[in-house]
């Protein structure tokens, strides 16, 4: 199986290189550094913290966007060029194809996490940056798996990208939504309010806690605790399993 997975992963990486995705990531880093340099000029105090926080936020969102766009457009191109059908016409399992693509995109995600983390070492302690980078890699891995799942199901650029954006924004804000829903200022809840709260709680069950991942506070205030890191890794593993299962389920039912 591995002899099928590795070449697919290698070609996916090659495609990322030819698409100049990593070059784009470097340009984003340069732009981010220039922007934070400007902010450092105007800040009276905590200039290092301001630079670290804003650069981290910018690179995090930038990496997520670039990766999601790359996965979706690359897969849609494979659909349109019938490359996928050509590969699957060979004696190859669908799961091998999926895992090969996932491995390739995951390698791109790791590279993006590394490129995004390194410049932060200029403004924050290296150990904290490393943990932040690890968390970003986990986050990007989940975005990769979700984008792959969406594009395999939806096969359209716009709908897949919209689904990924919705998933990401909701996963980042679901904790805040739960807090707001759980703190009404009245002691009695109307039926409608109870229903809305139940829906929010149900959605939260099916989403990864991205709001607890890759926190800027880890860079500027305190490193994450061991329990937080364990939770982060467990969340990544559980959700990646779920997404792989869902994507393979969809792929195995697909008729070409």
């Amino acid at each position: 199986m591995l002899r099928h997975i590795l070449p697919i992963a290698r070609y996916t990486l090659l495609e990322a290189r030819r698409n100049r995705l990593l070059m784009l990531a470097l340009i984003l880093v340069a732009a981010g550094l220039a922007f934070t340099q400007f902010l450092q000029q105007v800040a009276i105090t905590e200039s290092n913290q301001i630079q670290a926080a804003l650069l981290a936020a910018l690179l995090r969102v930038g990496a997520v966007f670039m990766l999601a766009a790359f996965v979706v457009t690359s897969m849609v191109r494979e659909f349109n060029d019938k490359v996928m059908e050509l590969i699957l016409s060979r004696p190859l399992r669908r799961s091998s194809y999926f895992l090969g693509k996932l491995a390739g995109y995951a390698a791109v995600a790791l590279a993006l996490a590394l490129i995004s983390s390194l410049p932060l070492a200029l403004f924050a302690p290296a150990a904290r940056v490393a943990l932040w980078g690890l968390s970003l890699a986990c986050e990007l891995l989940l975005v990769t798996a979700f984008a792959l799942f969406c594009v395999l199901s939806l096969t359209q650029v716009m709908s897949a990208l919209a689904a990924v954006a919705g998933f990401y924004l909701l996963s980042r804000s679901i904790g805040a939504l739960q807090i707001m829903a759980a703190n009404p200022l009245s002691d009695t809840l109307s039926l409608g309010q109870q229903l809305v709260n139940s829906v929010i709680d149900a959605i939260a069950f099916l989403l990864p806690g991205l709001d607890r991942m890759t926190q800027t506070g880890w860079l500027i205030y305190a490193a994450p605790t061991a329990a937080e890191i364990v939770q982060l890794l467990a969340q990544t593993a559980a959700y990646a399993l779920l997404l792989c299962g869902a994507a393979l389920f969809d792929l195995q039912r697909k008729n070409f």
Binding site: P208, L242, G245
Partner: peptide, 10 residues
């Protein structure tokens, strides 16, 4: 895999 992933997530 799907069932295990869902159970773990929940």
């Amino acid at each position: 895999l799907l069932a295990a992933g869902l159970a773990l997530q929940i």
